[in-house]
Design a protein around this nucleic acid. Structure first.
Ligand SMILES: [Mn+2]
Ligand SMILES: [Mn+2]
Ligand SMILES: [Zn+2]
Ligand SMILES: [Zn+2]
Lengths: 130, 130
DNA sequence: TCTAAATTTGTAATCATTACAATTTTATAA
DNA sequence: TTATAAAATTGTAATGATTACAAATTTAGA
């Protein structure tokens, strides 16, 4: 994955902070919160500001290369994997995992009244390590 | 729907505030926020406190008669309909509607690694009135 | 190099939620 | 009924996440 090209292709100037934040999201795939992103990256970029993390994530979302994961009502997580997939959160360890979904089985019956543009599927329970 | 019995059956003492809050959720089915619930009910109960709304909703959730709807990352909504259903939010008017789902079509392939206990499905787009 | 635009940063403000102690209401026993 | 204790409600203060905003820094172009 060429992060610089990916940002450039999506009209985002590839600054150091932007590259590092996107790289962190894409490589770790742990659906981190802003605090987690900031805490981990500030080791690499000592001058990093939490405001920059917020600004950058908003920029990513506006340009369609990041999405929020709102599986919990008290934390906002971020995800740079844009291929359709569901999420599972383990109530015990708190990790959020990607879940492959077979879209064909996901068609709803008669949602005539709505034009659906985005779908989010959130599962909770216990993971096999817990 | 006998709200007093419903609360009592779920180990919740049916105070005036609790009855009114549950009644509001169940009858309107608009997935309101705490602010909306408070604003509407304080007309009936002038002494109502927003803290009571928070406390009561937490009590309802802990006793399994209410659930949160986290379709948006900047607002927590509440729902007293516990039968399995999905939610659709119209990006234009902002309303959140219930969507019937055919559970049989919703089975995922191979989620062996997880024991799923709860499922939430959130859709977004445009409703037929917008 | 010089200048302007874009980006980053730090601080203050805002807003939702929680903590907590005081008040009020309800239940129980004398 | 009255007294007492427990439960519920309330108001205010504290907390924590997010946003607003202006200053500082970096980048790009002339
Ligand atoms: Mn994901
Ligand atoms: Mn609903
Ligand atoms: Zn786990
Ligand atoms: Zn609409």
């Amino acid at each position: 994955m060429d992060f610089v090209s990916h940002l450039t292709n999506n009209n985002i100037k590839p600054s150091l902070q932007r590259i590092k934040i996107f790289e962190y999201l894409y490589d770790n795939r742990k659906h981190p919160t802003v605090d987690t992103i900031y805490s981990n990256l500030v080791e690499d970029i000592p001058t990093l500001s939490k405001t920059t993390v917020y600004n950058t994530l908003k920029l990513f979302i506006d340009n369609g290369i990041t999405a929020t994961v709102t599986i919990e009502d008290n934390e906002v997580r971020y995800d740079a994997i844009m291929e359709e997939h569901a999420h599972f959160k383990c109530d015990t360890c708190g990790n959020v995992y990607d879940v492959e979904i077979d879209i064909s089985t996901l068609k709803f019956k008669k949602i005539k009244a709505f034009k659906v543009e985005t779908t989010n599927i959130y599962l909770k329970g216990k993971c096999n390590k817990c």
